[in-house]
Amino acid sequence: MQPNLTHLRQLEAESIHIIREVAASFERPVMLYSIGKDSSVLLHLARKAFYPAPPPFPLMHVDTTWKFREMIEFRDRMAAEYGFDLIVHINQDGVERGIGPFTHGSSLHTDVMKTESLKQALNKYKFDAAFGGARRDEEKARAKERVFSFRTETHRWDPKNQRPELWDIYNARINKGESIRAFPISNWTELDIWQYIYLEQIPIVPLYYSAKRPVVERDGMLIMVDDDRMPLNPGEKPEMKSVRFRTLGCYPLTGAVESEAATLPDIIQEMLLTRSSERQGRMIDHDQAGSMEKKKQEGYF
């Protein structure tokens, strides 16, 4: 009997199918590049989808100016190495208003520098489709997200009024100004992502690997002191600890975990043996119950 495709090869093929479908159906697609591991996988899949040609769309990073320095270095290195067309967008209005997570709190910061900034960028470049690396297993609200997720002219998501999505046939029809967010790795789990990174030897930001890093403990989270913009409370003193990150975002909002995992197999082993979900390290989910769903409705990924 002919061997079936393994689960990773099936997931890979499904993602490539979605990426090609978006490229063929829209005039101005863009791939949102968050520099995290899911983005690394997404980029890898895009390169596979159009080989030997390069992906027929640019990558865009919405920079909140509070990302880890290593993320930015990695981003620029990848762009140079693979030669992709990279757009970096920063909400200048937010910069001028001095918006930051320490001074304005995680909620306002994320809203202005991420959600608003993304909308600004989509409007500025008139993108009609944007790839994102969201997975359905990440959060309950995402379990119901479509692969082609329709957004209104104001970028809103209406969970009560989604287009039914059958088989592998995606409805790409939109009116002017409306757009689609496409999620090619919807059906991947965190474990699938790591296994695939391991199998395909996909480069990821070194922050995922354990190293001695300066951290302070705040509200039960280990926050890395990545630059001197971080105000220390009285009595707080950065300590060097062996830590790594299971998820990457703005450094003041991303909790590190103590770990000795310095290789991919170590990371996967740790992930399988520990029992806390990856989004726990993100402060934005903890703000209020159902917060992810609210953010999604407003246009956050």
Binding site: R136, A143, K144, P159, S186, N187, T189
Partner: peptide, 26 residues
């Protein structure tokens, strides 16, 4: 039950996808 309103009503109103795996299958 993913969406807040549904949780309160105690009913699921849409298709949701769940993932789990064993040693043999995902």
């Amino acid at each position: 039950d993913g969406l807040q309103a549904e949780r309160e009503q105690g009913i699921t109103i849409d298709v949701a996808y769940r993932f789990f795996s064993t040693d043999k299958r995902k």
